[in-house]
Design a protein around this nucleic acid. Sequence first.
DNA 1: GGCCAGGTCAAAG
DNA 2: CTTTGACATGGC
Length: 225
Amino acid sequence: MVDLLKIYERLYEYFGPQSWWPAENDFEVAIGAILTQRTTWRNVEKTLEALKQHGVLHPDNILDLSDHSLSSLLRQCGFYKQKTRYLRNFCETLMRDFHGEIASLRKMNFEQAKNWLLSIKGIGPETADSILLYACEFPTFVIDTYTQRIISRLEPATKSSYSALNARFERELPANLEIYRQYHALLVELGKRNCKSQPLCDDCPISVMCSHILKTSRARKEGYR
DNA sequence: GGCCAGGTCAAAG
DNA sequence: CTTTGACATGGC
């Protein structure tokens, strides 16, 4: 078994602190989490910008749009008809239950908040955890395809289902909001740069770090808190 | 032109 | 409970 904390330290040393989640407020975090499903953040940014320019970065305003107007605003980020439904589902439920205030989720316990999110069609485990971690300050570890890919290369035998990996990261790491936020962002950064082919790593741009990822880790306390 | 991107859902096996 | 196909545009 690889040492997950050690990997975190190596990634942090190599890439430095990441500024996630880029957004002006918790609602924008949540919208971005839905829009970025299987989509580059680049395209999501353009879509978020379009929504802002139309002054509809708020659940009320989004619900006022016709299906046609909303989906034309979402076109650039792909799966736009599906995401039109997902976004509507989310905004409707958010208005119905919390008057559009995501901050209300913080007053619930973690289980309740996550179940509330998962009950919305269009929000699965990763999107839910992303919202909980980056918009609501719950220390829950987000597992994405990069994380699954990286772990399965380091440990080909490990079961990499969402819940198994999420449980493992949370078991082996200190339950710390800032570490969870940084670590997930760092894994995405590694995943984006790493070569797509098997295995980790050899000819990818950061092969030196990959081959030494489990060794020589200087203790690095800053950024933990 | 081919492959992939910060997943989710519904339908099958 | 795990696997498969659909969903769609944009970048390299």
